[in-house]
Design a protein around this nucleic acid. Structure first.
Lengths: 207, 207, 207, 207
DNA sequence: TATGAATGAGTGTTCATTCAT
DNA sequence: AATGAATGAACACTCATTCAT
């Protein structure tokens, strides 16, 4: 008698496909972040994913599509978890803090993913930049929404441009994570959220 | 009477060599920023410089040395002009403002150079990052010196970490220039120094 | 009734691979001996073998490995056939004669292979010489074994050094084959075995 | 009063030229034997000779001409000294012995020259082989003359072909020198003349 | 659907040779 | 005569992509 309750019920073909899709994407993140996008062969991604070279091309258009898709996959995951965690936060400042903490936390927990985002995606190829900008805008939108809401609620200065604030936020986060990644002895990262936010919110000048 | 001092005296061999060196470096900046480092062949740099392929190798070790040397050349030029212009400024805040204005001004005046710095140098290759980090530290040092001096003079909050302030500065500048570069209609850039500095100095929160 | 044993059964992948391996090696012998190792491009070997350039690198490490592997392939074939033919010969002198006849016969029957062995393998590159010396030692061992056995049986002078005898044998064969190859009108070669052996065995001085 | 007997009187231009010619040839021998003909750049020969790259081309047609000329230079020197030393020897056997002793002596005294002759000249290029064969024939002629004279005088067996005897002689010398060169610990070489000649003259078979 | 052997276009680099000085 | 900077053709090797099985 077959067990009525399998630990993992036989996956449907569609599920198998989705699983492999995801497996390749995550292998790509690992492989690209380890060797660098240009120095990483498709064969290495395939090996990392445990599939044949040709199989990659059943799931993706080519190497570039693999990079872009991996980025989308990663960012969607991050945004989903951010949305869930940030929504309950009461005010704009709290939401911003929570977002920053989550971002730094993700990076700290998965340095390979962090290296992928910080280094491998900075490809100067026009087409890659274009393809990446879409998903990235989603993140931007969330940050700008927080700043806009904060301005309305009086938590943020209305005369500071929202896009400018967003850029300062992203720039500061970016530099912070990059510097942390390049350090040989990576200490804790998420705890840098406090000081960083302090400067972003109150500036360099004493009141 | 023959002039003893011609406007363009016959260049000495050493001068010719230095001139060619510089010519190749500047061709490299143009070629790399247009096509991307990895998509740009050495032959294209040679063509842009008006020399034969092999000539490149009389002046540089190889393609990577070309990238790194071009970066050093560019950054040294920027720093020299910054040092000159920033020294006379009276206080830390004025020095910071002048530095930022100059940085944005350089980028606005030479978008190709800006693209080179913003995109082509972000190579994930370990060896390139290492070779670049040295000269870049020079710039960091200047910014941190300004923040340190400002703290002593009471212009800046002493409890804000100097390295943190530097990272926020660099991150904000970086994002600002990148965003400007990616815009199809590049308007003025240097005038963004004011609002940007306002946020850096006084933060997002109203006092 | 389907035949259980086809004359040419569908080759297994492993067989196909071995076949191609051999095909490339033999193409390399032809191409190298025609154009000279250094003047022969890998592309030419590939063309001669009827495969793409890149395919060469699926079977060999590089050009040098191709040369060395080709040599090993050729010499192993020669030694196998020699061993088989020489074993039944009764005495040392007969064995030596048979070996010499076979050697000259191989060269006469395949001048391209002869040219490969005589000219292309004489590469002064240290690494090539080292790689070649191993297989070559096998041939040396056989000749020395014959001389040693002959000394014991009283057919050869015991006071003549075995290694010296081997060197005279190899040198004489080498010169003979080279001279034959360089001649425009290559007559028969194997029939030179008799006179050559006569000199080797009885010397230049009348008794 | 200027000394009437200078140690080296001012060289005429023609002498200077000849001196440089010789200097380049000898530099070529050293450079080629150290790095191998194909791995040795013309620039290295120039450096070794202490002249500019371009100067080489004032004295020689090109790299190949340099190799061939160097060979001719070396062989002419050897033959001149051989002729002088061998002439007084009384009989054919003595002449042969003297020639062999001189040959081995030259190699032992100048291993770099030996390596040049043994390895670098074995270039498979058709044109090189042709260019080399001429001067080499001179050496052959001397050896064959000795064998012919010896046959007439009854010292050598008349039924042994002269060319065959010459080939055995050259082959044996060649193998002997090569083996000596490849040995890490090069002991004495000239003293191998005796045993070698013994085998050449009396063969491998006891009488 | 998956495989992986085969492809062949693409490129950094070397170096024999030339020639303006 | 001598120089040595400049040339540019040539080539081994890589790897994204394809396709027969």
């Amino acid at each position: 008698m077959p067990s009525t309750r399998r630990t993992s019920p036989a996956p449907t073909p569609a599920e198998r496909k989705a699983e492999r899709h995801r497996g390749i994407l995550e292998a790509a993140v690992r492989a690209f972040s380890r060797h660098g996008y240009h120095n990483c062969t498709v064969a290495r991604v395939a090996q990392e994913a445990g599939v044949a070279d040709g199989t990659i091309y059943l799931y993706f258009q080519g190497k570039e599509d693999l990079l872009v898709s991996a980025f989308r996959h990663v960012l969607e995951g991050m945004l989903a978890r951010m949305d869930e965690a940030v929504a309950p936060e009461p005010g704009a400042e709290a939401k911003l803090r929570r977002t920053l903490e989550l971002h730094l936390g993700f990076m700290e927990d998965d340095p390979e993913l962090a290296a992928f985002l910080q280094f491998q995606l900075r490809q100067p190829d026009e087409s890659i930049r274009r393809a990446i900008s879409g998903p990235l805008t989603e993140y931007s939108r969330r940050i700008e929404a927080i700043f806009d809401a904060g301005k309305k609620a009086g938590s943020f200065r209305p005369e500071a441009g929202t896009r400018l604030l967003r850029r300062v936020y992203f720039g500061a986060v970016d530099e912070t994570v990059s510097a942390w990644l390049l350090r040989a002895d990576r200490g804790p990262l998420r705890q840098k959220a406090g000081p960083l936010l302090d400067v972003l919110l109150h500036g360099a000048v004493p009141r």
